[in-house]
Simulated scan of single mutants.
Amino acid sequence: MLSQARTRRRAVVTASAALCALTLAVSGCSGTTKDSVKDDAPADAGDAKANPDAPLKKGLKIAFLPKQINNPYEKIVDDAGIAAAGEIGATGKEVGPSNAKASSQVSYINTLIQQKQDAILIAANDPNAVCGPLKQAMKQDIKVVAYDSDTAKDCRQLFINQASSEEIGRSQVRNIAKQLGNKGEIAILSATQNATNQNTWIEFMKDELTKPEYKDMKLVKVAYGDDQDQKSFQETQGLLKAYPNLKGIISPTTVGIAAAARYIGDSSYKGKVVLNGLGTPNQMRKYIENGTLDQFSLWDPKKLGYLGTYAAAALASGQITGAEGEKFKAGELGEYTIGKDGEIILGPPTVFDAKNIGDFDF
């Protein structure tokens, strides 16, 4: 009898263990909480539905994470986004590293998750290094919006692009080619080697240069100043010494173009080497006025930050999910439509020169 009782107890234990194993596969044997389900959910659950008539939630917490905290261009973007947050009853802030290294943003993302932010807006230094923590943020129902420089597509819901990446890249070549008469050696002074936006633009620049009209132009070097003023200054000096026949430099980064202009403006290369790229009017005004360069391009970074905040708030409020074709209103900027892969384009870049630079103050 004792032996039969033990046998029955073993059967019950075995059955319970099997049931527990089966339950673990679904929810965990010790019990399931709302948080544990959310943590195990994929970053994009795929079952969320947009409600375009939903009001923007009040009291949202929105954080901007730039490539580096002391980048003057991104300071303009983030300040405008923080101001826009105040307009809609949200709280905005900026946090970030002092350098633009690939993994420098990871610890800040983790902190923002712990703070239970409603949305994180990030200008990624590297498309993949930030993916792990960003996916964790999305699992915690924190909305993730990339701006200026994208992450991998599955690591955010939206990407706010300044302008079409293709148009930015190709227009950089078209602009400097016109200044050079489509002849001569050129170089590119970029930011970091892993910067998503820079690399995308550069690929379009290289492709543009394969066209027959540029057969007498040659790209001799892509240099990287790491979005640091002094390093960009030194890289400019190095390019001009290494390539004595260099006729032009494209610098698609506000830090790089300002540093290059400072070097060229105080050297014998002034008036001999054409400089073009992306910069802000207030930063580049003196170099236009003293003849160091004739033109440069950019979009309005204030509008980029403003749009970023409204997009993040629309996500956090359930107006949109990030699906292609969804629409939302971005305050005074009007209505925007989400494109392929969650991309939203701010608008075409503006070319600044001596004729119009006085009309802008940023």
Rank of each mutant, 00 (worst) to 15 (best):
K75G: 15
A50N: 12
N71E: 01
V95Q: 07
D53Y: 15
D150I: 01
K116M: 13
N161A: 15
S107M: 08
P52Y: 08
V106F: 11
V77W: 00
Q162T: 04
Q114C: 05
A163I: 13
M138G: 04
A100S: 05
A83H: 04
A45S: 15
S98R: 15
K93Q: 14
N99V: 12
A45W: 12
E74Q: 11
K75D: 15
P66E: 01
Q162M: 06
Q157T: 04
A83T: 07
T151C: 08
D53N: 15
G89A: 05
Y73H: 09
I122S: 05
I113H: 01
M138R: 04
I109N: 10
G59C: 07
V130D: 10
F64E: 04
G96P: 06
G92W: 03
N51C: 06
D148C: 05
N51A: 06
K101D: 15
G132K: 14
A123K: 01
V144Q: 00
I160Q: 09
D154A: 03
K93E: 11
I76Y: 03
I82W: 02
I142W: 02
V130T: 12
D148M: 05
K49P: 13
T111H: 12
I122D: 07
V77K: 01
E167Y: 15
A129N: 11
D47K: 08
I122G: 09
I76C: 08
A50P: 06
P55D: 01
Q140K: 11
A163W: 09
D150A: 02
N71G: 02
A80M: 04
E74L: 01
P52K: 09
I142K: 03
G96E: 07
I120F: 05
K58G: 10
